[in-house]
Write a protein that binds this DNA or RNA. Structure first.
Length: 204
DNA sequence: CCACGGATTGGCT
DNA sequence: GCCAATCCGTGGA
């Protein structure tokens, strides 16, 4: 049971539950990265669940390797992986130790540190309205804007560098449930969730 | 040792 | 809408 109030950091117990539950409840929460006194933050608007035991699309499905070992930690840390030779993607590890479950953060609506995100993503301080919508509407884009990379792999989400704040719960009627993006296996599972009509989702 | 392909993105048609 | 870029983890020989 989670008793965290809005504005408070989500606790271990929030993450140590089923990936599907955590995924849906992460919508509307505030993702925060702090380095020094710079703060980057935004509302989580799109996620996907991956469950190692039954999900052929999960990195953890074929067992533990050097690359995916963080996914087998107990819930409450960040799993960052490198893909397509270009991009990092970040996941929230969920459930119990050795389960291999996680929630991929696919899109964020920027709140604080937008200047810094623009620099990280586009290398400039001022961007067009179109580029603003394009700042963090994809898993690779989030990691670019927030400057998240392999050195953040395994970081504790109850610590002070990267964490998630509670916020008002998104009602079920505002959540769209659909198939996941970019996978070739277990494509029938409806494990992608996003906030209806939010302009910052990666796609419908 | 080598070949393969990916939880993506951005540019071009 | 289609496709190349880019590179490293993974798995088979």
């Amino acid at each position: 049971m989670n008793h965290t109030k809005p504005g408070q950091k989500l606790s271990k117990s929030f993450y140590q539950r089923s990936a599907l539950k955590v995924a849906a409840e992460l919508l509307g929460k505030i993702f925060v990265k702090r380095d020094g006194r710079k703060v980057l933050s935004g509302i989580i608007v799109e996620v996907e669940a991956y469950i190692g035991s039954i999900d052929q699309a999960a990195h953890s499905f074929r067992g533990k390797t050097k690359r995916n070992q963080v996914m087998f930690n107990k819930g409450g840390c960040l799993y960052v992986y490198f893909t397509y030779g270009n991009h990092f993607c970040c996941n929230v590890v969920t459930g119990k130790e050795e389960e291999g479950d996680a929630v991929l953060i696919r899109a964020i609506q920027p709140i604080d540190g937008i200047d810094r995100m623009m620099l990280n993503r586009f290398g400039k301080k001022s961007i067009s309205p179109k580029e603003k919508l394009n700042l963090t509407n994809g898993p690779g884009k989030i990691c670019s804007a927030f400057d998240i990379n392999s050195k953040h792999n395994g970081i504790d989400l109850t610590g002070n560098e990267i964490f998630i704040l509670n916020n008002k719960k998104i009602s079920e009627s505002e959540i769209v449930t659909t198939t996941r993006i970019g996978i070739k296996k277990s494509t029938e599972l409806l494990w992608r969730f996003y906030i209806k009509d939010n302009p910052f989702i990666s796609r419908k």
